[in-house]
């Protein structure tokens, strides 16, 4: 399944995707969802257990307008 179609299916969630195809820039373009959750730790935990060789971590939410970032 195309990554762009996967991203449209899930809203405000973390996704762990097994990547089946990259473009020439190593951006994932095809894959399948291994785990999804609005709670990032659940998806990160799934990452530790998954056997897939090539994986992508994606977040489908937006940053709220009233939230800033300072690292």
């Amino acid at each position: 399944m195309k990554i762009e179609d996967i991203l449209k299916q899930y809203h405000d969630e973390w996704l762990l995707i097994e990547v089946e195809k990259f473009d020439e820039d190593y951006k994932p373009i095809e894959g399948k969802v291994i785990a999804h959750s609005p709670i990032e730790s659940e998806v990160l935990n799934a990452l530790a257990k998954c056997e897939s060789k090539n994986v992508a971590l994606e977040y489908t939410g937006e940053i709220p307008e009233d939230v800033g970032v300072l690292l």
Binding site: V19, F22, D25, Y26, K27, P28, S52, K53, N54, V55, A56, L57, E58, Y59, V69, L71
Partner: peptide
């Protein structure tokens, strides 16, 4: 997006 390669696979994620 960034991709990182190691002995057992490639991991991609969004990078700030």
């Amino acid at each position: 997006t960034g991709a990182f390669k190691g002995p057992t696979g490639i991991f991609t994620l969004k990078l700030l």
